[in-house]
Nucleic acid binder design. Structure first.
Lengths: 215, 215
DNA sequence: ATAGTATCCGAGCAATTGCTCACATGGAGG
DNA sequence: CCTCCATGTGAGCAATTGCTCGGATACTAT
């Protein structure tokens, strides 16, 4: 709670042990963040959990904020990578198949580290990392829009930008809330199918057929 | 950043000037919270903005957290009241009409104090108030579900609980994001209509007719 | 070995901040 | 005027915490 100047030039880890230190700091930050929240997570505690000294921590991260930002970056890149991969894999798939695959992928991604994701979404918008999250959201919208444009002939919405916007936020919110409040619903495919229906019925004119092969 | 014991019994405002003090403290908290965020908002600053001394603040609110919680309560009650009102007003309306009215009401409610709402949603889950927000969400789902049950004959989803869950979170997310990122889109009815379509096409079998009267 | 560098350590500084308490002030009733 | 209590005040305590710095230690190269 003391936003000091920290002009200190930071060191790049060169030896293997330094890499290990940085890694253990990041993982400790994750753990402490999940357990204590952003406020409860003080740098001394993080260093302790990581098994290093505060000094070491500040050799690689210029500030607590930067440390947390590094985690956010890691997480965003992971999520974006996953989405991009799925979009490119669905290059030739029908809208129905691609959407269902994508929704399941999102659920899966959220289920990996639900607590961490929750902290990211709920507690970190207040630091500068908010830009990063918003940027991720923008990239997600771009990906979806590109995808929609390929299928534009079949789509009902005329404004694809708005459609991408709605789809991205609706799916993200539904997925996020489901992981936290209905973790049991992840087993059977009902949740995934309903989210897919939400998207597909919005996008397509006419009715939407049930999935061909049941999960 | 010092979560002390605060055993102090708090005083109930009895005279008019005390009421005024409490009010000015609440409004100041709002302002400071919006401007500085939860962390930047220290009690000394809030008291200063309110034009009272810290001592007075702590005579009516046992802790910073309690102070913020009081604001959250106020806000939640306001939102819930608005939703309940719209649901009861739509008692006899068709699903289409009721949904469109409801979506517009949500957009309107969010547009009233967008910055405050944003702080509430983004920065306050970490304090105990999270329970309150979650509780509000649960009540919203209950309201929507009751409404859906009245129209169940026309609905496609079999699991109305899941449907309420998805609708509530999707609409909230879309509305919230739109207020913050697409404030211009609130003028014409395109945004409202698209959110309504998202909901209606998910809920109803078959196609959804455009609104009878434009706007 | 020796030098040079990368890494690590952790006591403690400086700043912040939630909150208290001893006291001042306002107003109503007598 | 005096009493009583509700209300208001603000200097400052106590605790927390982000971060630094002087120096120890591990590793590499020669």
């Amino acid at each position: 709670m003391v936003a000091r100047a920290r002009l200190h030039p930071r060191r790049q880890p060169m030896q293997a042990r330094a890499q290990a230190t940085v890694e253990s700091i990041l993982r400790a930050t994750e753990r402490v963040l999940v357990k204590e929240g952003y406020d409860g997570a003080n740098t001394n505690r993080i260093a302790e959990v990581a098994g290093v000294s505060v000094g070491s921590l500040y050799q690689y991260f210029p500030s607590k904020e930067a440390l947390v930002m590094a985690l956010v970056d890691e997480h965003c890149d992971q999520m974006l990578g996953l989405m991009a991969q799925h979009v490119s894999e669905s290059q030739d798939a029908s809208l129905e198949v691609a959407t269902r695959a994508f929704v399941r992928a999102m659920l899966h991604a959220h289920a990996l580290q639900p607590e961490l994701h929750r902290v990211m979404v709920e507690q970190l918008p207040r630091i500068q990392g908010f830009d990063k999250v918003r940027q991720m959201s923008a990239m997600a919208q771009a990906l979806v829009m590109e995808f929609l444009q390929r299928h534009r002939a079949r789509l009902r919405p005329a404004n694809l930008e708005l459609a991408s916007f709605l789809v991205v936020y609706a799916v993200e919110a539904a997925t996020h809330a489901a992981i936290l409040e209905k973790p049991h619903a992840l087993q059977d495919g009902e949740l995934a199918e309903e989210i897919s229906q939400l998207v597909l019925r919005y996008l397509l004119a006419g009715d939407v057929a049930p999935p061909e092969s049941v999960q």
